[in-house]
């Protein structure tokens, strides 16, 4: 089931929380919303899940539009809201049963679905407790379980791993990847490594607009204009090295790294690579090339550049 978002806008007073966003998510895609706090990630999700109506624009799930068929859409979406609100006075199993019934799961399937969710989300040990007695990690699992109880085709997860310990985070990520094979998943996060690890595609949102859209490689590639290398060269006359490097036809700038003898940062001209010529130069001059590392642009850099 694909999600089509068209010119979605939400205005609060004079402020545009979401400003004319359009994108499309295909079946089996895991898309990550990335952005600083208050960028409009949650607001967009709230509109997709029919919690609130947009000021203008439309969201469609296949042929269903949020304006006409919100009940159909809600049935097809599993949603984990930000901060994971839950009825803390309810026992886990009762709560899952309530969610299943509200979402219209057939009576005969309810118990089976609950069993499946308890297994899938690892709730077996705690299954007889009240939600209020659970630790944050387990609550998050209950939140995921209630989102998936009716086997929805679309999953919308607003910061699914907040408050989890590293082991749990890895488990949840694995689960999301697994689910993403058949379902359409949108998740939001401000943890970059998380989005990179789980998502096929990343949408970076800033001040209500999409500022970047693509897989993590394409985004990195876009941001990375010129090749940057760190090299360590041992030469008889270290003073020559910088001068000689600069004379290579592909090299744009060379700078020594302060406090580390023999280290240089070499930036190539656009669209070229200096790796081979640096090596050849060392062979010719009988220098020892101790180290040569390409500096890759991290997603962090892309993020900072786009959202600052």
């Amino acid at each position: 089931m694909s999600i089509i978002v068209e010119n979605l806008t939400k205005t609060y007073g004079h402020q545009k929380a979401v400003n004319d966003i359009s994108f499309e998510v295909k079946t089996g895609e895991v898309v990550g919303f990335l952005g600083p706090n208050g960028a409009g990630k949650s607001t967009t999700m709230k509109m997709i899940t029919c919690y609130m109506a947009p000021t203008s624009g439309d969201v469609r799930l296949d042929e269903h539009s949020i304006h006409n068929d919100s009940q159909d859409i809600k049935k097809k979406i599993g949603y984990l809201p930000e901060n994971n609100p839950l009825y803390t006075d309810m026992p886990i199993i009762d709560y899952l049963r309530f969610c299943a019934e509200v979402q219209g799961v057939a009576k005969s399937n309810v118990s089976e679905r609950i069993g499946k969710m308890v297994d899938l989300c690892g709730l077996e040990v705690e299954r007889h407790k009240r939600i209020g007695e659970l630790s944050k990690g387990y609550r998050q699992r209950v939140g995921l379980a209630q989102a998936m109880i009716h086997d929805p085709e679309v999953l919308i997860l607003d910061e699914p791993t907040t408050g989890l310990d590293p082991n749990q985070i890895i488990e949840i990520r694995k689960l999301i990847k697994e689910l993403g094979k058949e379902k359409t998943v949108i998740l939001s996060s401000h943890i970059l490594s998380e989005v990179e690890a789980t998502c096929d595609r990343i949408l970076i949102i800033n001040r209500g607009r999409i500022v970047a859209d693509g897989s993590s490689e394409t985004l990195r590639h876009q941001a990375q204009g010129q090749e940057l290398l760190t090299v360590q060269i041992e030469a008889n006359k270290p003073s020559d090295v910088e001068k000689e490097l600069l004379q290579l036809s592909t090299v744009a700038t060379v700078s020594g790294i302060e406090g580390r003898d023999g280290f240089f940062q070499v930036q190539s001209k656009p669209e070229t690579s200096s790796r081979k010529s640096v090596f050849d130069l060392c062979v010719k001059k009988k220098w020892y090339l101790m180290e040569m590392t390409g500096i890759e642009t991290q997603l962090e850099d892309v993020f900072r550049e786009l959202t600052n």
Binding site: K74, I77, N83, P85, Y87, Q103
Partner: peptide, 14 residues
């Protein structure tokens, strides 16, 4: 107050 209304109203109920 607790935000559960968001959870409830995004389920298939009016």
């Amino acid at each position: 107050r607790s935000g559960t209304i968001e959870l409830l109203s995004t389920k298939a109920v009016t």
